[in-house]
Design a protein around this nucleic acid. Structure first.
Lengths: 200, 200
DNA sequence: AGGTCCTTACGTACAACTGCGTATTTATCC
DNA sequence: GGATAAATACGCAGTTGTACGTAAGGACCT
């Protein structure tokens, strides 16, 4: 069960949270608001799609720290940084750290919405791509160590005979493993196997 | 013959050009300076490696415009933007447009050097990766239309027979094409063909 | 007229796929 | 402890797929 793409707003200033919630809701976007990075982290269950709208200056964990923490945990939720007193160095740092955008307060409602929509669209796109590759990863995980070993030889372009010689086993055994690999990967041809092995 | 990675400095202010040239030369980095974007464009021969150090505010073409022009021409030279009077929106725009960094004047010499070294290192890395993929592209370009068509069927996992049936030709012809494909791509196995076809 | 491309047949040799049968080891569950 | 499943291993035989040498014809472009 995967949830709907949601805009997660994290800001310690309640009036701002409320106004953002109104703005986003009126634009038809699902919103959840949090008063701190900790609250957000407690509630967010990866890898729910959407994007994060976070203020830089907050008691406890700052927006930039939250961004870095998500990156360290390999959570690919795009982050839009909002700031009241931003300067260039901070913006550059955030963007280099992978922020989707960096917006100064006071912001124009329409521009912010536009920016959020673009970010959500890119996130959806990224997730579509990743779901395909994670499907490959899952199938690969179903292989036994021996099968994986033989698959690597296959992808390297070796013949069954050569693999058998390399591993000191009979060609027949390689064939059996090969058949199992094709079955587990749902591959109908060697080309499929190579594609799946490379796409993980 | 490929040139050495060079730092291309573009700034209309001569004292700054000179001081940057001194700084970079003393750091052992090859430098070329230009007074305008046009001068740089006239002298730069893609895809020479290195990085571009460019001021935002210049008569004629601005640094940001130059950056966009390079992107439009698909010239992958990393760009470091320098500015005297930058603001956050400009920095964000430059970074979103793919700038490697965005530095405010007056800058710290050591920090700038560090930033340039990182950018050069990343550029060298990117070029290594791309040279491998462009090798594939070149080989693929040597295929005739018919060979390319058959290669696509092969990569899709079809057998010679199936391809022959699809194209309404004899299996032997497919074999001949297949052999030519392997030869031109310098592939020793079907797995190699798939890899090359996917890596382009 | 020569070059490249696309096409084909015959025959030989090797490689791969499949079904069927067998066997050992290890892990897991009752 | 015994049953069961999964992983690993091997052989034979038959069918299908692939590789390659040789030889050669038609289309098209320069």
């Amino acid at each position: 069960m995967q949830s709907e793409p949601t805009v997660y707003v994290v800001d310690d200033d309640e009036p701002i949270r409320d106004s953002l919630r109104m703005l986003l809701r009126s634009a038809g976007l699902p919103v959840e608001t949090f008063a701190s990075a900790q609250q957000f982290l407690a509630a967010y269950t990866p890898p729910a799609p959407g994007c994060l709208l976070v203020d830089v200056r907050m008691p406890g964990m700052s927006g930039l720290e939250l961004q870095e923490l998500l990156a360290a945990r390999k959570i690919a939720l795009p982050v839009i940084i909002i700031t009241g007193h931003g300067h260039v160095a901070m913006a550059v740092r955030a963007m280099k750290a992978g922020a989707a955008d960096f917006v100064e307060k006071p912001f124009d409602d329409e521009l912010l919405l536009e920016c959020i929509r673009r970010t959500l669209a890119r996130d959806a796109d990224t997730r579509r791509r990743q779901s395909r590759s994670s499907e490959s990863t899952q199938r690969l995980a179903a292989l036994t160590p021996r099968e994986r070993e033989i698959m690597e030889h296959l992808v390297a372009g070796k013949s069954n005979k050569a693999i058998a010689a390399d591993l000191g086993i009979s060609a027949r055994t390689v064939e059996v493993h090969r058949a199992r690999i094709m079955e587990k990967l749902e591959a109908k041809s060697l080309a499929d196997v190579v594609r799946i092995a490379l796409s993980s």
